[in-house]
Nucleic acid binder design. Structure first.
Length: 95
DNA sequence: CCTGAGCGG
């Protein structure tokens, strides 16, 4: 399950996010989105969990929870249209 | 620059 985690501290790292979600279930991979220009955090990240139930549980618990002194915004991530997909063309599949 | 929107490669 792909989980979007936003509104996090710039001081937070991916492994800290990993541990935060591992409290509620198994985490396959955690990834805080870093800026390619500055090299620092963009303020949001993504956590991937193999179990859907643990993902929902982690969301219910970590959504709005104070992480690094900041309340994080946790929700299920959007299914990206080109995840290793063939068409490099951006197709507006947004309602 | 010590920041502040929110969905990455």
């Amino acid at each position: 399950m792909n989980i979007y985690v936003g509104n996090l501290s710039y001081q937070l790292s991916s492994e800290e996010l990993r541990e935060a979600f591992e409290q509620f279930g198994e985490v396959s991979s955690a990834n805080v989105v870093m800026d390619k220009l500055t090299g620092r955090s963009k303020g949001f990240g993504f956590v991937e969990m193999p179990d859907r139930a643990s993902g929902e549980e982690a969301i219910k618990q970590l959504d709005g929870a104070p992480l690094k002194g900041r309340n994080v915004r946790v929700n299920e991530a959007r299914p990206r249209e080109n995840q290793g997909g063939f068409p490099p063309r951006r197709a507006p599949r947004r309602a």
